[in-house]
Amino acid sequence: MPLIELALPAPDGQKLLSDRHAETVTAISDALRTSLDNLSRLQGRQTQYAFEAVVVALGSVRLIKTEDSGLFSFDDAGGELQPPDFRIVLSDGAQPLVEVKNVAPTGTGLEAKVRAKDMASAQAYAQATGGRLLYALFWSRMGIWTLVDPSAFNHVGSQQRLSFVAAFKANEMHLLGDRMLASEPPLTFSLITDRDKEQVVEGLGDGEETRELTIGGVEFLSAGRVITDPDEQKLAWFLIMHGDWPQTEESQFDAQGRLVSLDYVSAPEPPDEDAARQIAEQAFAILCTLSKLYTLRLLEATTTKQGDIRALREEPEPALLAQLVPDDY
């Protein structure tokens, strides 16, 4: 009903609302076509849904609710009010109000920009409703979320601006249960063959042949050590599937030339020798944050391989990330 109310033009004459079905369908269809043809609007909405799904999957807040839906009235004597996207109730009862922004890469670098008057009206709304305003910025080039207070921004002309480095320093995603994951590299998913069942199917000449293989088992390994704990196996699989480390495929053979295993190896690519030395000395490397892991998973489910949007949202799995990494881990 609220959708009908917003889509329909003002009533004309004494025509009953129940008799305006065709008019309603046309109005909603036109509005939908306009939105679906607006790529930036779709990307913005997808980012907003992704943030909601990440918060639900992290499983650390008591409530998250869309704040900017529906109509509201206010006394404008003190200026404009603009509701942010979400109201969140944290475990300690605090209620931050979160405005979600997608920060697309540009030629001028990584910088979030918000109109100063929009930030002022959102802050006024937060003050009027007893909440604290925060900005959830999705840096799409890296797939990273930062949650920052408006005080972190710099006022430049008619805009409030924030660099990625400054946002990362001021990041408060930990309030929502976000954590950074690290592991000793590499992480390996190994398909182990049953060599007794290996058969030559066809000889191709020049020593080449086609063989039929049977998978006898699978293993997960961290730095060459087999992972036996079921919770760690589940976590390793999720990290291999959705983590930042690039993956290579390696084949292991025995002395008779039979395939022992097919290994999918995930390992970091240090940018320089100093970074590689640091990883070796500390015996671990950063994979990524929990929030990034779930965002990548969500984007895989809602976009094509070419990056085109095929859906705006996928129902989040409550506390999935909290279950992957228990509090006492």
Rank of each mutant, 00 (worst) to 15 (best):
A124V: 08
F72N: 06
A283P: 00
G203E: 11
L221S: 06
A126F: 10
L299N: 02
Y294F: 04
R33P: 08
Q82D: 02
R45N: 02
Y264E: 02
P316D: 15
S60T: 10
A53R: 01
L287E: 11
Q256P: 03
P9V: 01
Q159P: 09
S222E: 13
L137V: 12
T248Y: 03
A122M: 15
E23Y: 03
V265T: 09
A122E: 14
S261L: 07
K117V: 08
T248M: 05
W237G: 13
P246Y: 04
D19Y: 00
G70I: 06
L312Y: 06
S18H: 05
T129R: 14
A152L: 14
E273Y: 04
S190N: 07
I279T: 12
L176N: 12
I309Y: 01
D206M: 11
Q127N: 15
Y329R: 15
S29Y: 09
V89W: 04
V56E: 13
K65M: 00
K234R: 14
Q159M: 10
Q256Y: 09
E250P: 07
H242Y: 07
L42C: 08
D263T: 07
G59F: 05
R313T: 14
F253E: 11
A116L: 14
A275D: 05
E315W: 03
G44D: 01
E208K: 13
L296E: 05
R33S: 10
V156Y: 11
G130R: 07
P318D: 12
E232R: 12
D178K: 11
L134T: 02
D254E: 07
D194P: 09
V226T: 13
V148R: 05
P186N: 02
L162A: 01
T193S: 12
S29L: 12
L296A: 02
L191G: 07
R297N: 00
D85R: 01
P270D: 10
Y125C: 06
F72K: 02
Q323S: 15
E209V: 13
